[in-house]
Simulated scan of single mutants.
Amino acid sequence: MYFKSIFFEDYIAESKRVTLGRTITETDFVVHAGHTGDFFPHHMDAEWCKTQPFKQRIAHGTMIFSIGIGLTASEINPEAFSKGYDRLRFVKPVFIGDTIHAVVTIAEKTDSKKPEYGTVIEHVDIINQHGEVVLVCDHILLAKRKPESNSNGDSPK
């Protein structure tokens, strides 16, 4: 992980970045259930799940969101900060043993209410090892604009 200053002007519409993958484990299920208190049988009861349509335990959607977004944190941009996520959808189930990765696409750039910032929308697809999208969301960033240069090309003091 490293720090890299990326200003609003540096974001390029439709550019993409792809993360490394991460395999989902039973330990992930147990730890997430403990953190959230979500011990629903869909996630924790293997025998009950055998009687259900998927025939196996399904990952907590919130866990896949957390892990998937965590995969995108391979770069830290000190010139932008998250305002949150919109249009979050759990598209397909994720199971123990599935490997997910994220594809981040710069979907939109707009002016912000604060003139020294711009808003960047990163569309995030979380994809399993079969190439299927399992989760989608839009990440809203507030990104600082580049400091204006003076006439001799130097940054203002």
Rank of each mutant, 00 (worst) to 15 (best):
K50I: 02
V94L: 14
T99W: 05
I76K: 13
L135H: 07
F95C: 09
M63P: 14
V120Y: 01
V104P: 06
Q56M: 09
G131P: 00
L88Y: 04
S82H: 11
V136C: 06
E47S: 09
I121G: 02
P115W: 00
I121N: 05
M63H: 15
I67S: 08
C49V: 08
I100P: 04
G131K: 01
Q129T: 01
E116A: 13
K55I: 01
E116D: 14
T51P: 06
G68T: 08
F54C: 04
H60A: 07
D125V: 01
P93C: 05
Q52D: 07
K113Y: 01
K114V: 06
G131N: 03
V94P: 13
V94R: 12
G131I: 00
V134Y: 02
G61Q: 08
A59L: 06
E79M: 14
V133I: 15
V124Y: 00
L88W: 12
H123L: 05
G61H: 11
I126V: 11
R57A: 03
R89H: 12
D111H: 01
R89V: 12
G84I: 10
I126M: 00
V94W: 11
G61T: 10
Q56S: 14
T110L: 06
G84A: 12
K55L: 09
F95I: 03
R89T: 14
C137L: 11
K113S: 10
P78S: 11
Y117W: 07
T119A: 01
I106P: 10
V91E: 14
H130Q: 12
V104H: 07
E116C: 02
H60Y: 10
G70Q: 09
V91L: 09
H130F: 07
K109N: 06
V134A: 03
I121K: 09
M63K: 09
D111S: 06
T105K: 11
Y117C: 02
Q129P: 03
D111Q: 05
N128P: 00
I106V: 15
I96C: 06
C49L: 05
K55C: 07
F90R: 08
F54S: 03
Y85N: 14
A73I: 05
Q56V: 02
E79K: 14
F81M: 13
G68M: 07
H43F: 10
V104A: 11
P78Q: 13
R87W: 04
T110P: 03
H60M: 12
T105G: 05
N77K: 08
Q56F: 02
G97R: 05
T72C: 12
E132C: 06
G70E: 06
V136M: 04
Q129A: 00
D45N: 15
H101T: 04
G68Y: 13
Y117R: 01
T62Q: 15
M63A: 12
I121T: 15
I76T: 11
V91H: 11
L135Q: 14
F65E: 10
E122A: 10
D45M: 08
K55D: 09
I121F: 01
V120E: 05
S82V: 11
I96E: 14
I121W: 03
S74Q: 13
A73M: 15
H60V: 04
G118I: 01
K83N: 13
A80P: 07
I127A: 00
N77F: 07
G97Y: 06
G70F: 13
E79N: 11
K109Q: 06
I127D: 00
N77A: 02
